[in-house]
Design a binder for these strands. Structure first.
Lengths: 251, 251
DNA sequence: GAGCATTTGTGCGTATGTATG
DNA sequence: ACATACATACGCACAAATGCT
């Protein structure tokens, strides 16, 4: 009965016994579907069982195609959760002139920011030392969510010496740009001295703000910025959504 | 009956009603025990229940002391697992002259390395482009576990163009130093161009090799090294044990 | 996956000590 | 002497995360 199929099957779109492995055809089909936006970045793909039903093949065949796609970085397979279309990763360059907006615009994306919290708190030991002030002195704490093309990218917690920047809270309430606010305070330029990078799992709030799974890590950086005279302007801890951001260091 | 205790209790070492909060005394006791090595870095501390029995106080009181210790960065508390003495973090400097051994020695630690695998494999698309060779050409793949003071720090997967470094496998079999092997191949110096940094959860094998929990992330870096002439010498993917390492970028 | 033991996290109620006015 | 406020400490119960079977 079953005659050799020389034309693509009506319902599955696959051709058998034509020298092109079924898994390759499936791979190409999915590749095309991802490319033309039928599966959007970050979205969940159908389960292997669903795909094997759709293409009328064994699950192993689908897996072979998926492994290839994962190898090419187009999808990400998570045991027990499913498969997901890879998200386009934002390259975030770390250097002496690191500025969020410039960084994001250099990737042809639209930067945005939202202030989450502004408060004045006493400096605890470690922070006071880094800022070069005495322990217990007031620091302006600014927490900010930064986005690229509307997608959350990083939560930044900035610490400024309150004595030097008393108007900072008001300025930021009007315009969430840190660079602009500092310029208005008489710091037209600042320079990043060191960045320390670690990673950990996010707190529930962080996962929520960054709109990512609780089991995906965050990249944590701690940066120290100084003004041209060398005085410390701020100490910032940032938490980046790993998987949506790649920190790039050029030497 | 119960008289005011002016002297420390015989079994617990705590004094009540003497103006020093019990939780502070517990905090100081544990701090001293960590400092003199009775609890070693990375080791698990007694459970809150055990500590509250030992000090004959309520669990809340112990918790308060532990929170303070966590705030000072001396311990790390993990729900459902226990509390652990903080490990000393290795600062790993990223720069143009990044070398594992030098980096570790600069921290007064003893570097070591173990080759896990040496193989010759064809270059897949992305790698071939980065190395500046044609797709499918042979690359020498070297997988190496690097340690500081005997503790695993990073797994590195190096990719060298096989055509240029044919003797590399033999050399590394004798001496696990990459720098030394390259020098013997006529590359006395190399320079790191870019480093891309992301984070993810480790595979079971990675967690095993790095001797860390499956739920602690790894920092993943991808680096490109060039010789003085600008030719790409190797492309390396490294997986660092987050929590034992901090990547440091100085600008 | 379900079930279980272990361990930390959280909430509530209560009592006592200490400092202030 | 009294009221108030705050930190300390205890007891109990349950929630949530983890690891193991």
């Amino acid at each position: 009965m079953t005659p050799d199929a020389v034309a693509p099957d009506q319902s599955t779109g696959l051709t058998r016994r034509q020298g092109i492995a079924l898994w390759r055809q499936i791979q190409h089909t999915l590749e095309a579907e991802i490319a033309d936006g039928r599966h959007k970045p970050g979205a969940r793909l159908p389960t292997e069982a669903e795909l094997s039903a759709r293409f009328a093949v064994n699950r192993h065949t689908v897996r072979r195609a998926m492994e290839e796609l994962q190898g090419r970085g187009l999808v990400r397979i998570e045991q027990g959760r499913g498969s997901f279309v890879a998200e386009d990763v934002v390259d975030y360059r770390l250097g002496p002139r690191t500025r969020f907006s410039e960084n994001i615009r250099a990737q042809n994306r639209e930067p945005a920011g939202r202030i989450l919290r502004i408060a004045e708190v006493p400096a605890e030991a470690g922070l006071a030392e880094a800022l070069g002030i005495r322990r217990g002195r007031a620091v302006v704490l600014v927490e900010r969510l930064a986005l690229a093309d509307g997608r959350p990218v990083v939560i930044g917690t900035h610490h400024f010496p309150a004595a030097r920047f008393p108007q900072l809270p008001e300025l930021l309430a009007q315009n969430p740009s840190i660079t602009a606010a500092l310029a208005a305070c008489g710091v037209p330029d600042y320079r990043r001295r060191v960045t320390r990078i670690t990673a950990r799992l996010p707190t529930p709030e962080e996962a929520d703000l960054l709109q990512q799974s609780r089991s995906r890590p965050v990249l944590v950086t701690e940066a120290v910025n100084t003004d041209p005279a060398g005085a410390v302007v701020d100490v910032t801890q940032s938490r980046y959504a790993a998987g949506r951001v790649q920190l790039v260091v050029e030497s």
